[in-house]
Amino acid sequence: MSDARTITCIRCPRGCRVTVLSVDDRKASGQTCKLGLEYALEECRCPRRTVTAVVRTDNEKIRYLPVKTDKPLKKSLIVPLLRQLYTMKVCLPVESGGVIMTDFRQTGVNVVVSVGAEPI
């Protein structure tokens, strides 16, 4: 990969425009921190995103809970993950950070509850 590609970093609100000169040599310009370099290289190799959603609970007062992947997930696996999340039902109580899905499709990515809840 030698063709320069410009990527807008999404790791912080600054949104640096990073031009990747070489993925193999880890060469890029325009980033203002090392997160920018890492993000831009990852984006060239295999784009990933943190996925957030809500899942149904077994409680009628608190019907949905916010969840997220604990690491960014390969983009092509986002829709399959969401499909599975939308069929799930989480039983309360559940703690903040509690894992509700482990190692999704052998990616090492888990789905955790952002903020847990007690049944009411």
Binding site: R11, T52, V54, K68, V115
Partner: peptide, 22 residues
């Protein structure tokens, strides 16, 4: 605001809205 991207300045890590509030 269940998406992530909160707290990078304040907590030095990326949180979802509910986590930041918590």
């Amino acid at each position: 605001c269940i998406h992530n991207g909160f707290g990078l300045h304040h907590f030095g890590e990326e949180l979802t809205g509910p986590e930041y509030a918590l």
